[in-house]
């Protein structure tokens, strides 16, 4: 399912705030990134780790993808973070300051080691590396291909602009190049591209414009730091009604082809390519999440089921 997993909204929640953690099950985002890194002050690293571990061990009915942003492995907290967090089974690690393929491989090896030692299926823990320095932008394609666990590249603009020695602007021109490079690297590697946080939580119009832009570029999701931004991002990522109608026709055509036992799918007399089918399934699953259609599509239909 990795191909079609919706990650329109990946919400950061500080790992040291019980009042926010308590509401994690209730936020309507696709994924939550519980943060042990930048949101947590040096003095509170241990306490936050305990709190997050305790929260995840008591959250029974998980209803969204759970990532934990650990501290970089080269800091004195990174390995301890992993040790504490892996037993409570996050879906993925948000891996900050990942500048090279080797850094991603180091994390991959740690995860493999833990999985083997604990009888967990290899590859269970996924990785979402943060592309947030000039160097990581340049290396983004290699990073995306560094591990099978990596399902996407996540752009981080704050550290990026700092590494460039420039100030972040609202217009977004300063981020044009890294955004393009990251989305191209992600697409080339067959993974998702996730955009950076839009930090002005009171300017919903600008958030909408920025989300529209990154959607046009090929990004399939965005990180965010305030739950109030969820709805607008979902609205932007919602497919248009004509897209949904077309996708429904495509899926209908696949079903008919499956029934007839033919591998060739045609719609209105034209052959339908596999990428078109995949996009149709993605469109319908996004539409389902948005309440536009009544049922999701099982991608098993691609295999003739």
């Amino acid at each position: 399912m990795a191909d079609f997993q919706l990650r329109r909204t990946m919400l950061y929640v500080p790992g040291n705030m019980p009042s926010m953690l308590q509401n994690v099950p209730l936020f309507q985002c696709d994924a939550v990134i519980i943060d042990l890194e930048d949101a947590v002050n040096y003095a509170e690293k241990d306490a936050a780790r305990n709190l997050v571990t305790s929260f995840l061990s008591t959250w029974k009915d998980r209803n969204k993808e759970v990532l934990v942003r650990i501290n970089p492995l080269y800091t004195k907290w990174g390995h301890d973070d992993l040790k504490a967090i892996l037993p409570v089974m996050p879906d993925a690690i948000r891996f900050p300051m990942c500048e090279t393929a080797e850094m991603a491989q180091e994390l991959d090896a740690e995860l493999t080691k833990y999985e083997k030692a604990n009888g967990i299926a290899e590859g269970h823990f996924k990785i979402l590396p943060s592309i947030e320095t000039v160097k990581s932008v340049i290396n983004s394609y290699e990073i995306a291909r560094a591990s099978k666990r990596i399902y996407g590249l996540a752009f981080g603009a704050e550290d990026y602009t700092a590494s460039m020695g420039i100030a972040r602007t609202n217009s977004g021109e300063d981020l044009m190049h890294p955004r393009m490079q990251i989305v191209m690297a992600a697409k080339a590697a067959g993974v998702q591209a996730i955009d950076t946080v839009f930090s002005d939580v009171n300017d919903m119009d600008a958030l909408r414009r920025e989300t529209e832009t990154i959607k046009r570029l090929g990004y399939t999701g965005k990180c965010l730091s305030n739950p109030r931004q969820i709805e607008i991002i979902h609205e932007v990522f919602a497919p248009k009604e004509e897209e949904v109608e077309y996708a429904l026709k495509v899926v209908e055509a696949i079903k008919q082809a499956n029934e007839m036992g033919t591998g060739v799918i045609s719609l209105n007399g034209k052959m339908v390519d596999l990428p078109v089918v995949k996009r149709a399934i993605h469109t319908l699953n996004t539409a389902y999440a948005q309440g536009m259609v009544d049922a999701p599509v099982d991608e098993e239909i691609l295999n003739g089921n």
Partner: peptide
């Protein structure tokens, strides 16, 4: 309200 839960 600006409280996310209130908005929900």
């Amino acid at each position: 309200t600006r409280d996310p839960m209130g908005l929900q």
